[in-house]
Amino acid sequence: MTLDVKLSALAQALATDVKALMAAVGNPAALNTTAKTSLVNAINELQLALQSATGINDAAISAASTYSSSKVTDLLAQLKEDILGGSSAAYDTLKEIEAKLGGDDTALANLLSAVGNRVSFADVQTLTAAQQLQACQNIGVGDPTIDLVAIYNAAKA
Results as ranks from 00 to 15, higher is better:
Ile43Lys: 02
Asp74Glu: 13
Ala90Gly: 04
Gln78Ile: 01
Ala107Asn: 03
Ser52Thr: 09
Leu79Thr: 03
Gly102Phe: 11
Lys80Leu: 00
Asp143Tyr: 01
Gln12Leu: 12
Asp17Trp: 13
Thr54Ile: 07
Thr128Glu: 03
Thr126Met: 15
Tyr67Cys: 11
Leu21Glu: 14
Lys95Ala: 08
Ile151Phe: 11
Leu94Gln: 07
Ala15Pro: 03
Leu101Thr: 10
Glu98Lys: 03
Leu79Pro: 05
Asn153Val: 13
Lys80Gly: 04
Tyr91Met: 07
Leu75Trp: 12
Ala63Thr: 06
Ala90Arg: 01
Ala150Gly: 13
Val40Thr: 13
Val124Lys: 07
Gln125Asp: 03
Leu79Gly: 01
Gln131Ala: 15
Val115Arg: 09
Ser38Asn: 04
Leu94Glu: 05
Ala11Phe: 07
Tyr91Ala: 10
Val18Tyr: 13
Val149Leu: 15
Thr145Cys: 00
Val25Ala: 11
Gly142His: 01
Val72Asn: 08
Thr33Gln: 04
Ala150Pro: 09
Phe121Ala: 14
Met22Cys: 12
Glu98Asp: 08
Thr2His: 09
Lys71Asn: 12
Gly103Trp: 02
Leu46Asn: 00
Asn110Asp: 01
Gly103Gln: 10
Thr106Gly: 05
Ser70Gly: 12
Ser88Cys: 03
Ile151Met: 09
Leu148Thr: 07
Gln125Asn: 04
Leu111Ala: 06
Thr93Ala: 11
Ser87Glu: 13
Asn117Leu: 13
Ala122Ser: 11
Ala30Arg: 14
Gln47Leu: 05
Ser62Ile: 15
Gly140Lys: 12
Asp143Cys: 05
Pro28Ala: 15
Asp147Lys: 00
Ala24Val: 06
Ser62Thr: 15
